[in-house]
């Protein structure tokens, strides 16, 4: 079993930062960029707990969000799904937020000689775009597969195309190939690639199921509800292949897909 072991502690802090800008991509997707003069050492794969400083009792809990960027202008990509993200989608520049981070682990190093294949679903693009942007200065250009229900569910696909060789799918065929993003994957899986994925659990379960028999390393960035983000609430268990649970906040969010029991595609909580 894995209970988060808390020694040594990550240097996490809670800061209050003003929203610098909100860039909306339709009603559902927004990039929130914050002003943090002293900077945040947030690396690709890590996440932050975000809560409006003036929210009062509702929404009560901060929301876990992958960093889209770090430094003095840290940003997150949000999809409106509930009360917290609705509030965030209406936020105006100057509005104060509590940002707690950096939290969790980073994407692992890409193995020498392997080409990364990124598989993104919807808002799951955020940590993968951050990863691709961090690889670009090293001359690494990943292949990216990006899927959504329709063209409206592919936020930041243009930015992704700048740093990746991008292939897009939509379930309604409104952009790219019609169908699911996983249908493009089998042809790419060889001994020369590694897969990094973030998106709905069902998508990541399908990606993991394609990688395992071909012995391709697959790292999944998990998204689950959580109350704290640092191993205390124990609200973010993920079924471990060997039994027991991993915790998305402390063992992840980036976890080798082979160590997860994906079950019926609901390992990390069921909400696909």
């Amino acid at each position: 079993m894995s209970h988060p072991d808390l020694t040594p502690l990550a240097p996490r802090r809670q800061i209050t930062a003003n929203l610098a800008r909100r860039d909306s991509m339709g009603p559902a997707y927004h990039v929130l960029t914050f002003d943090v003069p002293e900077g945040v050492d947030a690396r690709p794969g890590q996440f932050t707990m975000v809560r409006g400083a003036e929210w009062g009792d509702a929404p009560l809990l901060p929301r876990p969000m992958s960093y889209l960027s770090g430094g003095r202008r840290p940003s997150i990509l949000i999809k409106v799904v509930g009360d917290g993200t609705t509030r965030m989608a209406r936020a105006v520049p100057g509005e104060p937020f509590h940002l707690l981070g950096p939290l969790g682990n980073t994407w692992p190093e890409v193995t020498e000689g392997k080409r990364p294949v990124l598989v993104a679903g919807g808002v799951g693009v955020a940590p993968l775009l951050y990863l691709a942007r961090s690889l670009a200065p090293h001359g690494v250009r990943p292949i990216a597969l990006y899927g959504g229900r329709s063209e409206r569910d592919l936020p930041m696909h243009e930015e992704l195309a700048e740093v990746c060789d991008l292939h897009v799918t939509t379930e309604d065929g409104s952009r790219g190939e019609r169908g699911r993003v996983t249908q493009l994957l089998p042809d790419l899986l060889s001994g020369d690639v590694e897969v990094f994925t973030c998106g709905p659990d069902r998508m990541m379960a399908a990606v993991a199921a394609l990688c395992a028999p071909r012995e391709v390393r697959c790292i999944a960035s998990l998204e689950t509800p959580m109350a704290c983000g640092y191993g205390v609430c124990l609200g973010c268990p993920v079924k471990r292949a060997e039994g027991g649970y991993l915790y998305a906040c402390m063992d992840g969010p980036c976890i080798d897909a082979a160590s997860i029991d994906w079950g019926d595609g609901a390992a990390a909580g069921g909400a696909a």
Binding site: M1, H3, D57, A58, P59, L60, L61, D83, T224, P225, M226, A227, C233, L234, G235, C236, P237, V238, K239, G244, Y245, A268, G269, G270, A271
Partner: peptide, 22 residues
């Protein structure tokens, strides 16, 4: 080990938890 997920959810001015004493 505690209970399977989901273990928590937010409610008006509160939250529900069923961690199961992990």
């Amino acid at each position: 080990h505690g209970n399977p997920p989901e273990r928590i959810c937010e409610t008006p001015a509160g939250m529900l938890n069923a961690i199961g004493l992990a």
